[in-house]
Write a protein that binds this DNA or RNA. Structure first.
Lengths: 343, 343
DNA sequence: GCTGTATGGGAGAGCGCTCTCCCATGAACT
DNA sequence: AGTTCATGGGAGAGCGCTCTCCCATACAGC
């Protein structure tokens, strides 16, 4: 039933009665071949069950036709946290988008976790060995070494989110500032006047901009100062931050959390303090992840079009693999307000 | 700074003043080489920044030193569901475990989604091309084609969970029946007497066994009949099933849900009907996923040691890649009861 | 009828490795 | 001293492709 040694180009050529070169040309559509001969070759491929050997092809083309997805972050070191992050709906949506965009090209991405410098080295070596032609970088925290290291070994990369410092990397990002503005505008429109914020880690550009947009939005609505506490995007940090804010601003009536997970934590903390959501306090999250949909009350949130962003990352990367000469570029997407019960 | 064309074995050999073969022997530790010469070669590798070309190596060894992780399920077809599944903490923990176990071997797994027959074909072709030496299969639903197709092209596979029908595949699984028993025993031990169950999809062996164990456990505690409703492991299905059970068994005081997500849905449904958890109704989930930890009340659950199971999958697969001759084998792990507030 | 020019096919080198031979050396026996 | 044998190094084939040449043929233009 199964061919013992896989058939090679040579075998197909013999069956078709042509040369190896001709078969190769038909398969790769690399030069004109007479239609009759194409037909004969196709039939021979069918008959032999031929599938090109990727290693042999890669050896001469110097392309692997593979890409890597690198998940970087400072806090993946224990498996629980890493599980947490891979588990983050944010990541799931992004990954699904990437896989979907790659599928038509017959590419399945290799997944790597970069937790420390040793990993960066191992990953760079992996790329240098020719295992993959380029990288899609997803980090929770600004990690600047990898793009440079990969560029060094001639591998382009595309990052999700703008890097904190300039780096040889294209990126896809959201108009975070606009997202923050939308949150403020919505909260103001439902009559709130005592806003607070739970920000993301402020070393992350996205967190800075969400917050800046939020403050800007409130400034426009006549509220020049917004008390805020920094969180870490996680459930626990949201809960803790909310408690602190309730201490500092007992009469608050609106919360913007820079992630849905933090919003969920905040809502639970509010419940513990006897505040009803949204009657007493309105809460807006960020991301539109599963917790936003599933928890009670459903969380009103700012949605990132992650699937489309993932597709853009793939497009950008494949372009740069095809032609490495142009400088890195970027694409910015618009956020969308999703209304649920919490605000 | 960067070597224009990557240095080859030949280059290293020249620098070291030995033959290509000797350098290869040192790098692969494949035969005795005099210590002094080893040293010289190592220095030359260092000096040239040599990294072996994987394609060239694969071409002759017929090994890619890569493995694929195939995520299969019937309901991944729309990106939302796929995102949902990748997003499932269950999957995140498993994937993290796999990546961790593979890392010491310098292997980064290729991720593939199998949603339909075309995908199965594409995936099989991918393996046949020599892109990966073996597959780790994770399916939510029993999918039997892939192991056979992969075996056909000479690629071993290891499955998470026992296949519904016999297949040429090793597997790693949990003692689900024992898990069900533990749930019943715990609920009985906290004084409950009117148990119900929300099962997983009954075509899945794991769902059958959890339920069988649960019923067996209650039978031992003098409760021969346990009303149950079938769910689909999801939040919504848990919510729906709970409503139905409340209709049918208004005086129920214990619920075993075959997944944490369903348990969460059930708890919300109970809340909607004015039942307090755990005062009025005790709820036990399954998996110990993030929702079990994060939701209020925290869900008492049966934990699967997914990280260790993932490591076992990797071990089994690498063994079978090394030596394909032995028949597929399996490893079964024990569940652990994790106490939280819900029961 | 001769040259110029597309057009399409074949020959063969070579990508960077591994691995099987084969050979040189020296130690350990008879 | 001669033979055997273990040890370690080199030569070179060949893995399955792609791609550059080169050549055969056909056809147009003068």
């Amino acid at each position: 039933m199964s061919a013992d040694p896989s058939p090679t180009l040579e075998d197909v050529a013999r069956v078709a009665g042509v040369s190896r070169a001709t078969v190769s040309r038909v398969i790769n559509e690399t030069r004109n071949v007479a239609p009759e001969i194409q037909e004969v070759v196709r039939r021979a491929v069918e008959a032999t069950g031929y599938v090109p050997n990727r290693a042999a092809r890669s050896l001469v083309t110097r392309r692997s036709e593979a890409v890597g997805v690198v998940v970087a972050g400072t806090d993946l070191s224990d498996s629980l946290n890493a599980g947490q992050f891979l588990t983050d709906p944010f990541f799931g949506r992004l990954l699904t988008g990437i896989i979907g965009a790659l599928k038509p090209r017959g590419i399945f991405p290799a997944l790597m976790l970069a937790e420390n410098e040793a990993d960066d080295l191992a990953i760079t070596a992996y790329f240098k060995q020719g295992n993959a032609d380029g990288a899609l970088l997803i980090s929770t925290y600004p990690d600047e070494r990898l793009p440079g290291m990969l560029a060094e070994v001639g591998r382009p990369s595309v990052r999700f989110a703008r890097p904190a410092r300039p780096a040889p990397v294209s990126y896809v990002d959201l108009a975070h500032r606009e997202g923050g503005r939308m949150a403020a505008a919505h909260l103001a429109s439902v009559g709130r006047r005592r806003p607070v914020a739970i920000t993301g880690p402020m070393e992350i550009p996205a967190a800075q901009e969400r917050q800046a947009g939020y403050e800007e939005g409130w400034a426009r609505h006549g509220c020049p100062f917004v008390p805020s506490v920094e969180g870490g995007f996680t459930y626990d940090s949201g809960e803790r931050a909310m408690k602190e804010l309730l201490d500092r601003v007992p009469d608050l009536d609106a919360v913007f959390a820079a992630s849905d997970l933090m919003a969920q934590g905040a809502i639970h903390a509010l419940g513990d303090h006897g505040r009803r959501v949204p009657e007493d306090v309105a809460v807006v999250g960020f991301d539109d992840s599963a917790p936003a949909r599933l928890s009670r009350p459903g969380i009103t949130t700012i949605r990132q079009p992650l699937e489309e962003m993932a597709a853009a990352m793939v497009r950008l990367l494949l372009q740069r693999i095809e032609d490495p000469s142009p400088d890195p570029t970027s694409v910015i997407f618009d956020p969308v307000l999703v209304l649920r019960e919490s605000a």
